[in-house]
Computed example of a mutant assay.
Amino acid sequence: MRQQAIGLESQPVTMEVEKGAILRFAEAIGDLNPQYTDEAAARKSMLGGLVAPPTFLRSVRGVNLELPFELSFSRRLDGGSDWEYFQPVRPGDRITAVARIGELTERAGRLGVMVFMTTVTTYSNQFDEVVATQTNTLIAY
């Protein structure tokens, strides 16, 4: 199972970042930083214009890994995620996300066998610059 999974990649998912989506996202999370909400103020900043809040990339949907086997556990738990940011995400960017299985381990727990699966999702812009990576852990038991 482990050999089949490690390195497996998802199909790429691409989204175009819209200015309105950035503004709505910033409003929804309650972060009214002018860098995300005020174009005039953002243009005067060192970034030179509006950028998306770092957590905006959580809104990229449809990144699915098709496993070559069945995980026959009825419960799944999000074991947390770590993010690294490298470039700002701007209105008009085309962000492509690709997930890859980095690790798969099995452990014994109170309720029986648990499988820990670590995936690394890489987010790149239209210039093939990596803007961020997310390392996520899924626990199945």
Rank of each mutant, 00 (worst) to 15 (best):
M1Y: 00
R2G: 10
R2K: 12
L8W: 01
E9H: 14
S10I: 04
V13M: 10
E16N: 12
E16T: 15
E18F: 10
K19A: 13
K19R: 15
G20K: 12
G20M: 08
G20F: 00
A21I: 00
A21S: 13
I22H: 13
L23Y: 09
F25G: 14
A26W: 02
E27S: 15
E27C: 12
I29M: 10
I29H: 06
D31I: 08
D31W: 02
D31E: 06
L32G: 11
P34L: 06
P34W: 01
Q35E: 14
T37L: 09
T37Q: 10
D38V: 09
D38Q: 04
A40Y: 01
A41S: 14
A41K: 15
A42Y: 04
S45N: 07
L47G: 11
G49L: 07
L50H: 03
F56I: 07
R61Q: 14
G62V: 03
G62P: 04
G62T: 02
V63D: 06
N64R: 11
N64Y: 01
L65S: 02
E66Y: 09
L67C: 09
P68L: 00
F69N: 14
E70W: 11
S72E: 11
S72C: 11
S72N: 15
S74D: 10
S74N: 13
L77Y: 04
D78V: 03
D78L: 10
G79L: 05
W83Q: 05
E84D: 09
Q87W: 13
P88K: 06
V89R: 03
R90D: 00
P91F: 04
P91G: 10
G92T: 02
G92F: 04
D93A: 11
R94G: 04
R94W: 00
R94P: 00
I95Y: 04
A97L: 08
A97Q: 01
V98Y: 08
V98N: 13
V98L: 13
A99K: 11
A99M: 09
R100Y: 03
L104Y: 14
E106C: 13
R107E: 12
G109R: 13
L111R: 15
G112D: 08
G112E: 13
G112F: 09
V113R: 15
V113I: 14
V113W: 09
M114C: 00
F116E: 05
T122S: 03
Y123E: 02
S124L: 04
N125V: 01
Q126D: 07
D128Y: 12
E129A: 09
A132S: 08
A132T: 03
A132Q: 09
T133F: 07
Q134W: 00
Q134L: 07
T135L: 04
N136D: 06
N136V: 02
L138G: 03
L138V: 01
L138E: 00
I139C: 05
A140K: 12
A140I: 01
